[in-house]
Structure formats: structure tokens, C-alpha cells
Design a protein around this nucleic acid. Structure first.
Length: 399
RNA sequence: GGUGAGAUAGUCAAGUGGCCAACGACGGCAGACUGUAAAUCUGCUCCCUAUGGGUUCGCAGGUUCGACUCCUGCUCUCACCA
């Protein structure tokens, strides 16, 4: 029983520090029904969660299945500093107002995956603000600069002459202090958080806690490009609030290699089943696109519904396999004759008339499914379906 | 505080008085081929109804017929010294 739970918990994880402690917690749960706490921190910097975040959330949900109370930590204080992780430059600081705005949409998205009744939402501003200058200094005295520079991204930035703000040094310390305050039993985070997560253990010890948190690290989910980590700023993400059609299409656009990665980290299929799929693709009995569709269905269904997922699949087939016009296209209107390039910009499927001209020249623009080449084309009264490339559509009514 | 180096398009990075809307690479977009995959090949990649015009090379001035290139001041970054 314990071993089974442990196996599920460890699935897809990159590293687990203090396996024994986790086992002990699980044993206490199964034997005596004792719960324990699992902390995960989230930065309220962007109001939207994407699949990269859900890797962690799903892991938290697994813990909840086995007796954990989740400490869903909103880093409203630390967000004012900016976590240096993975950034090549100092991050811009958010205002309190911006942060507040992000939080509510944030949590409601998270509860699509987490069990609300087993989750405590906590804000680190509550205790970090009270820490004061003296507390900060005490905290900071625990760490040397040399040790701080051991951190990969700091040393890289230092070596490449990119600025590091002193306040950024405080980030790992504050995150670690969160674990002291919350007395977390386990903390989970991405592999890029290793330094910060371990800081929690170190500080818990220094501040005299009996137990030090176990640390579970999950791999970072690659974005749609398959290279960089999924992030909103890179635009290579699938947001959990995105429409079913978009979600489905985005999953299908990832590469075959990346697909297995997504299977491992996002699917709830058992590892054995995934392996079978992999073999099937290898020996040619399964078409990789079919396998990818299955993944797309599973993910879309998770955030929408079974019906919506199926509808998205049908829509996708319609538009791409049969190259028909999508069902829902944004509609625009205009008065009087309009120049094609201007129309494309007005319908927001081209950023500028310059770009529109280029695309027309290259034969990427279609009007009512017909490729056009006349740069000067004027659209008279009537209804038109405008299309740029394979993905951008708009309907325009000219009065 | 002192000395030196640097800031160029989404990123990296050439350019060191006119040949510069600015080489190249990556990214991105589009076309061909496909499974809206990958790989490959090709074209495009500041804005503007455009064989032309406008605005760009950290910011503000100046020199010059002409400045990304020279001068002055400022802002920011880095290194060394204190």
C-alpha cells in the first residue's frame, strides 16, 4: 500500500530528497490516519496558469489522495522581489495591486485539479512583512555570497556580465523561510527550484525545527517548441483557461518526441500503457497522430468536458484534414469599400499593412477560400471569409 | 569615489563619416512536402496604398552638405582599483 502510493508519488519526478521521511509520513497516514503538509509556492506574476504549472498541481493532487494537506503558497511578498530562477535578466517588480488582481483567477484555476477541502491557501506576505529589517538581516546572515553564487543561474549571469540585484539574493532565503514558518513536511517544485527548495531544509534546521522538509522536484515541462520551458512570456504555452478547440489544436501541434514527454508528465495513463503506445508507434501498428490525438483529448477533457473535447477533435478534423472553414470565426464589419490589406489588419489577422502585403505576395492570403495575388484588391459590399496562412481566419461584412 | 570597457531591430551580434532600414546567426511568419509533427528546400521578417515616403542604432544636445559611426552632457551595465 505504502509502496504503491510512493510509486505514484514518484512518477515522473526528477529527484526526491529524503525518501525515508516521505515513507514515514505515508506510513503514519495509512496506520494512524495522520495527515502531513505539502507546500508548493506559486508566483502571482501572471494571472493564467498553463500546463507547466499543472505538472506540479497534479502531483499535489496525488499527495492529497494519500493524506496530504496542501499548503498552496501565494508568493505575494516574494513576487515584489522577483524570482531570479531561469531569468537572464532582473525581473520587473509587480505592484501590490497587480498581484491582488492575479490571485483570485489563479486559485480558481488551480481548483480544477486540486481538492479544495484539502488545501490551505496561504500568503507569504502575512509573515514576511512582519519579519522586519532585523529578521531579514538575521535571515541573510545564514548565507554567504560564495554559497549564493554557487547557484547556477547566478553564476551564469555573473559570468556573462548580466546584472544581479542584491534583492534577488533574498529570494531563496525568503522562500526557505516560508518553509520554516509553515513547518512544511514536504515541498515540491521544479528542478530549477532546487537551490530554493534545499534552502528550506537548511533554514528549518538553523531555526531549530525537528524535521526538515523532504523535497520533490519535478522536471520542467517544455513548451510547444520543445526546447524552452513552457512560459507565458515565450508564448509557447497551453493555458488552462483556453478554449477547447485551441487547446486541442495546440497539443496536436507539438512534435512527436515532445508528445512522450507530455504523456509522462501530464497524462494520467499508467506508465505501462504509455510504453505500449510507444511500442505501437515504433512497430508501425499505431499512427503517431492517433496517439497524439488521444493525448489531446485527455488534456482537453480535463479542463473542459468529454463532449467539448470530442467537439474540438471534430472541428480540428474539419478545418485541417478537410480544409474547411472553422465553425466559429470572429466577425467584423466595415462601411464601404475596403482595401484588402487594410481589411486584414482591421480583422486583426495581420499586424500591419506591410506584413499583409508581404503575405499576399507570397500567396498566403485567401478570400473565400480563393488564393489572391492582387495587392490592390478592393472589397466591395458583401460578406467575405478572410484567411492568412493555415490558422488565421476572420469574417468581414462590408456594407 | 577613481580608471577602463560597453549600450545596435524579438534575442545574439557585425558595422566605426556617405555604398545603412543597417552583414550574419537564432527565433518568428509564409510557401512546397506532410500528419497544422519532425526533417528538408524557398521566400519574408520597422512603419506607411509603396519602383516612392517616413521613423530607427541607450537618452539629450552639438559638429558636418551628410552621423549607427566624431564631440559634449546624462542614464544604465560590466570589470579593475578604493
Amino acid at each position: 500500500m505504502i509502496q504503491e502510493a510512493l510509486k505514484e508519488i514518484k512518477r515522473g519526478c526528477a529527484e526526491l530528497i529524503d525518501n525515508e521521511y516521505v515513507e514515514k509520513l505515508l506510513k503514519a497516514y495509512f496506520d494512524e490516519g495522520k495527515t502531513y503538509t505539502v507546500k508548493a509556492g506559486f508566483d502571482p506574476t501572471a494571472p493564467d496558469l498553463h500546463l507547466g504549472h499543472t505538472v506540479l498541481l497534479q502531483k499535489l493532487a496525488t499527495f492529497q489522495k494519500y493524506g496530504a494537506r496542501v499548503q498552496f503558497l501565494i508568493g505575494d511578498f516574494t513576487a515584489t522581489i522577483g524570482d531570479p530562477t531561469g531569468k537572464s535578466a532582473t525581473r520587473k517588480v509587480l505592484t501590490q495591486d497587480e498581484i491582488k488582481k492575479n490571485i483570485s483567477s489563479y486559485t480558481s484555476q488551480a481548483f480544477k485539479i486540486l481538492d479544495e477541502s484539502k488545501t490551505d491557501i496561504v500568503y507569504n506576505n502575512d509573515w514576511l512583512e512582519k519579519l522586519g529589517a532585523a529578521g531579514m538581516l538575521r535571515l541573510a546572515s545564514n548565507l554567504t555570497v560564495a554559497r549564493m553564487l554557487e547557484r547556477d543561474d547566478f553564476s551564469k549571469r555573473f559570468a556573462s556580465n548580466t546584472p544581479i540585484a542584491v534583492s534577488e539574493f533574498m529570494y531563496p532565503l525568503l522562500q526557505g523561510y516560508d518553509s520554516v514558518h509553515l513547518q512544511s513536511d514536504i515541498e515540491i517544485g521544479g528542478t530549477d527550484q532546487k537551490f530554493n527548495l534545499l534552502m528550506g531544509r537548511q533554514l528549518q534546521k538553523l531555526y531549530g525545527l525537528k524535521k526538515q522538509q523532504a523535497v520533490l522536484m519535478m522536471p520542467i515541462l517544455e513548451g510547444l517548441d520543445g526546447v524552452q520551458k513552457m512560459s507565458k512570456s515565450l508564448g509557447n504555452y497551453i493555458g488552462v483557461t483556453e478554449e477547447a478547440n485551441t487547446m486541442f489544436a495546440k497539443v496536436l501541434s507539438i512534435s512527436d518526441d515532445l508528445m512522450w514527454r507530455y504523456y509522462e508528465l501530464l497524462s494520467t495513463k499508467s506508465l505501462e500503457d504509455i510504453e505500449k503506445l510507444q511500442e505501437g508507434v515504433k512497430d508501425g501498428s499505431l499512427h503517431p497522430k492517433k496517439v497524439k490525438e488521444e493525448l489531446a483529448l485527455e488534456i482537453t477533457e480535463r479542463f473542459h468536458s468529454h463532449e467539448a473535447a470530442l467537439a474540438a477533435q471534430a472541428e480540428f478534423e474539419k478545418v485541417h484534414a478537410k480544409s474547411q472553414i472553422p465553425t466559429d470565426i470572429e466577425e467584423f464589419e466595415c462601411d464601404g469599400e475596403i482595401w484588402i490589406a487594410k481589411a486584414l489588419v482591421d480583422c486583426k489577422i495581420e499586424p500591419s499593412t506591410s506584413q499583409a502585403r508581404r503575405d499576399i505576395k507570397q500567396g498566403a492570403v485567401k478570400v473565400n477560400q480563393e488564393k489572391i495575388s492582387d495587392m490592390q484588391l478592393q472589397l466591395g459590399a458583401g460578406e467575405y471569409i478572410l484567411q492568412v496562412g493555415k490558422r488565421k481566419f476572420a469574417k468581414l461584412k462590408v456594407k
